[in-house]
Design a protein around this nucleic acid. Sequence first.
DNA 1: ACTTTTTCTTACCCACGGGTAATATATCGA
DNA 2: TCGATATATTACCCGTGGGTAAGAAAAAGT
Lengths: 250, 250
Amino acid sequence: MDSTSPTVPSSSPWLPFESRRRARDEKREAVLRAAVQLFLEQGYRRATLNEVAERLNITKPALYNYFRGKDEILFECWSMGAELVDGVITEINAGGGPGLAKLRKLVHAYAGLMATDFGASLVRFDLRDLAEKNAGLARTAKKRIDATFRKYIAAGIADGSIKRCDPKLAAFAIAGALNWIGHWYRRDGGLSPTAIADEFAVRLTEGLAASAGRDRTLKETPAAPQRRTPRRKTAANKTTGKKRPGGVSR
Amino acid sequence: MDSTSPTVPSSSPWLPFESRRRARDEKREAVLRAAVQLFLEQGYRRATLNEVAERLNITKPALYNYFRGKDEILFECWSMGAELVDGVITEINAGGGPGLAKLRKLVHAYAGLMATDFGASLVRFDLRDLAEKNAGLARTAKKRIDATFRKYIAAGIADGSIKRCDPKLAAFAIAGALNWIGHWYRRDGGLSPTAIADEFAVRLTEGLAASAGRDRTLKETPAAPQRRTPRRKTAANKTTGKKRPGGVSR
DNA sequence: ACTTTTTCTTACCCACGGGTAATATATCGA
DNA sequence: TCGATATATTACCCGTGGGTAAGAAAAAGT
């Protein structure tokens, strides 16, 4: 196992390992994509693993090579969404700006995410379907996201860009409007995700803006360099190549 | 049956019938109250009829004296919520006032409803769990509610009380924030329903107000004569006394 | 070519819970 | 008191779907 196999001098001996691991991870993600779609279409409880497998041209027990059970698949779908949001947040935190501007960026990006499968899974799935351990992780992640909304609002009040209000309730109102997108948005509807995001970024924050008069300064923030973020960060996890689903939880 | 029984001259011969029917309806509603609570606590799919019955100190088959099946119970719970909203809407429609005032009244009352069991059932239950026929009715009712939000906003724009905006998206944003209350509100939390309603009535509409400067005129509308509406209207249905759940649908 | 490991399939188990049948027990009208 | 009607109970059926066991098929390693 650990013998630095001298029989393969040309090119990295890691490649076979790597490619095997990659192939495995690709299949894992394919399962997640099929699952999240089905779960959103029919609802988690109604959706069956048989049908998930069928869509991938395999059979149910094959899924158990990649996941411990149905609820773990659900959790991983949810996690994908959470990672997307986390990515957005760290990116906004990296940049500076007044609280209001940060809030607008968050609203804009979050609205866009709600129009994606993994993003919607954040709000369409019932955490009570998760194993207690995973449900706990999910609750924590949710709290962190909510805290971010409040933090930006509080910061905005502090720096004068947002008028005085209760950050908790204001965050609930904004997050609620955004989360609801995940429930009504349809790909074949008349609204494009960016149109929704643009409008919500304005509509949900204009009432909070401290700038008295009418809205000016509303066009500077949304869409910044208009860069969505499909890539996955926060490496971690990713089943480091070991056998058996083991990795789990995070 | 139709013989005007001459043998019972003293007091109304209907009373026995009436009281029997009343007793039946009371039990029916008791089932609904127990069911909606359990469904909200555990989720519809997880909750079992056995447990609903257990909470009422009866056994599962007894439930079938009042309802055709689990999904009908769900529908009736949902319907109770829908009737509450309908009541609010007809009351607001009855009164006059500019679009913005009506919108605020609706937001205020709707927020309060989201803190009740039957109100929350409007947004916490999955219509896909309903029989197709009932799901259709529910979709229609939902559309009607959404249309009301848009109507008030459009009216507000027309009469100058609300600034120009897309009524569709504005309605989505407001309804979303409100509906979300049904997901996060907890009776044992720090926020009282009226506090939430008051705050949301302001927060969700201030951005739309056409009145340029800061907010004045914000205190006149909410809570009007502060009259909640617990009574049930829209008689119809109500199992007119016949045997077997028959009535159904509406 | 051989073994070993990973991946997938066929065939099954079985707990759960919605729904029904047959039957007992109040309740009411007479 | 006595039939008729609601109303409730006990005992059961059975479809569904998550999960597993045993072994075939396909890669990978040597």
